[in-house]
Amino acid sequence: MSIEKLFGSCSKLQIFPRHAGYSVVVQGLYDDVKRCCNKMGLKVHTTNHSLGIWGKKEKLPSQELLEITTMCGHGMVPASLVKDALNDIKTGKSTVKEAALKLTRPCVCGTFNPDRAERLLAKIAEKK
């Protein structure tokens, strides 16, 4: 079983039950994570470092669409749905918030962040 939680600051990490024995994985800038752990008397154990995206990158949608679609790690939020949501905003069919919620639905694991999607959609819609 896994549980995911978004922490805005180092001090909030301290809510973890220290002695429950659960494995805990923190995502973020490694130096920050290490510093937070040291502060809490924890020793970082194992890391996973990405080497970035390789291969046929020309097949990828634009960076601004990727910023939204990649919030669903399983790829269930298509770039075409983001374009559709942007069109809904442009034509007045939906508000930015409604458009963000529409994008949230296919992400069945619940990691897609609708608040961030709303901010990003608003930014793109403003430019167009």
């Binding site: 973890f16 490694y30 994570v33 154990h45 990405s50």
Partner: peptide, 8 residues
Amino acid sequence: RTKTNIGM
């Protein structure tokens, strides 16, 4: 930016 197991 990494995933880090913090050894708990």
